[in-house]
Design a protein around this nucleic acid. Structure first.
Lengths: 118, 118
DNA sequence: TTAGTTTATCGCAAATGTACGATAAACTTT
DNA sequence: AAAGTTTATCGTACATTTGCGATAAACTAA
């Protein structure tokens, strides 16, 4: 048969994962996340200096990441310091891990013998 | 200081990762990926039957996933069988793993002592 | 108070994304 | 050949995203 399929609506986790993914769906935002992951924190100005986009545009990208819950900002007048969101980053980590078949690092997708089509 | 920052342009990997993430940025597409990950393959009709969206809409979502390289489709007249993309799924797996600080499963984001701001 | 620094927000234009119904395309069965 | 099944594509409407310059907001230093 083939009737053991998807539920009709999205689960909270599916929505959360899609929301994280959506926020990550732009190269600049990936760049920002990588930066924060590598060096803990940074100020908006640091990004403005090194990314060839208007300051307002970068601020908008930061807002997207913040609204998605991936980063958090702390006001340190006159600057704002951003870091990965302590609470949600591990959640995102988990959700993506689960989607990708969790761990076993070298796992290949469930075989679909024949494949290579279309 | 603080001048050891981001490069001016995006690397190929950053663009690739953003592209994967963007394709994953919708709950229906997450649902489809989970399904394919869980049961290897499925036909468009299976999705059409179980997701409350028009057939044309689902077809479009499949196209987004296919264009991003996350899934592949094989024509088996009169149906089309979809599976995770054998080549790229592991790539996506790796890129996301790397972004999330690779492995150590329980790692928390690099401390940003003080935090909780804004 | 005034001027300076840093970041967020507003208003706008152009491009993309989302969903639908209608229709075409490909192939099977009668 | 005609009718049926399954999936993709087209055209359309509406919403969201992306990027910019201009401006406001918050706070410090003169």
């Amino acid at each position: 048969m083939s009737r053991t399929l998807a539920k009709v609506a999205y689960s909270a986790e599916e929505k959360q994962l899609a929301s994280f993914a959506k926020a990550m769906g732009h190269p600049v935002r990936i760049q920002i996340l990588k930066l924060l992951n590598a060096q803990a924190c940074c100020y908006t100005g640091d990004l403005t200096d090194n990314i060839p986009l208007a300051q307002s545009t970068i601020s908008q990208h930061l807002k997207v990441l913040k609204d998605a819950g991936l980063i958090q900002g702390e006001i340190m007048p006159p600057k704002v310091k951003y870091c990965l969101n302590q609470d949600n980053w591990p959640v995102a980590q988990r959700l993506f891990s689960e989607l990708f078949g969790l761990a076993s690092a070298g796992d290949s997708p469930k075989a679909c013998r024949d494949s290579e089509g279309l």
